[in-house]
């Protein structure tokens, strides 16, 4: 009994034989993935392999039909949970293309999200001074100006600002499992360092991180524990950080060929 309980705590996210169809086309074809607490996983793969589909399905985006398999997060059936319940439980997705929401200030979104999480845990709302202190601290960490809080969510933000904003939300909301979809796309090297530092600061014994990326570049800054290559809807190959470097040097074709063979 004790052993099983420990195992459960360890196994943060478990995806088993996941099949997903988008507009009648099967994108994920029996994907298996386990992420344990404290680990950083990177999913890599050629364009169109289904990388973004995986994180979108875990977060609960509409338009994705799960035709088979299961997703379990800390013992809970993720597919049965509402979108916000997943986030409240600590499953947080960083968007590849963060959405603009005119008129809604960043600070509102942050506070509403944080309080929703606390409410779900049966905690009181965060006192305003404490909240402001927290946000300012995280802002400084992301090298962002306080005026940014008064701006509407992502509206008129540069690509780099949007990505920083995603990480800022992670830092404030402290997810159990942070999923970052192509968080490096469109970033110059300085912005990438800030974003990577932010992600690295999230690394913790009780937290999992899932990076979805096309390029190995990001993994020079955020060194993963496990690297998976996603090809045609399945994990074709898994390894450690060394695998990412190999992919950088040799491209994806050899994995594709290996899979076909």
């Amino acid at each position: 009994m004790t052993a099983r309980r420990i195992e459960k705590v360890f196994k943060m996210l478990e995806v088993k034989d996941l099949h997903v169809t988008v507009e009648g086309k099967e994108i994920l074809k029996g994907l298996n993935l386990t992420i344990n607490a404290g680990e950083v996983h990177a999913i890599m793969g050629p364009n169109g392999a289904g990388k973004s589909t995986l994180s979108a399905v875990i977060a609960g985006k509409e338009g994705y039909e799960v035709t088979g398999g299961t997703i379990t997060f800390e013992g809970q059936d993720v597919l049965e949970m509402e979108i916000e319940e997943r986030a409240q439980a600590g499953l947080l997705l960083g968007f590849q293309y963060p959405v603009e929401i005119p008129g809604v200030k960043n600070i509102y979104l942050l506070k509403a999200a944080l309080n929703a999480q606390r409410e779900a845990r049966g905690e009181d709302e965060i006192p305003a001074p404490e909240f402001l202190k927290l946000v300012k601290e995280k802002l400084a960490q992301m090298k962002m100006d306080a005026s940014f809080l008064q701006r509407a969510v992502n509206e008129g933000f540069s690509g780099g600002e949007k990505k920083r904003n995603e990480i800022l939300q992670m830092l404030v909301l402290q997810p159990r499992l942070a999923m970052l979809d192509e968080i490096d796309s469109g970033l110059d090297i300085d912005a990438m360092r800030v974003v990577a530092d932010g992600v690295n600061s999230l690394r913790a014994e009780d937290r999992g991180i899932l990076l979805v990326t096309h390029y190995q570049r990001l993994l020079d800054y955020i060194v993963p524990d496990r690297v998976h290559v996603l090809v045609e809807g399945r994990i074709a190959k898994s390894g450690d950080a060394e695998l990412a470097r190999e992919l950088e040097a040799r491209g994806y074709d050899w994995v594709v060929e290996e899979t076909a063979a």
Binding site: G60, I83, E84, L92, L93, L109, A113, L173
Partner: peptide, 11 residues
């Protein structure tokens, strides 16, 4: 809506 909900905010 999805963006807000994926931050834990109810619909």
């Amino acid at each position: 809506l999805f963006y807000c909900q994926s931050r834990g905010i109810s619909e």
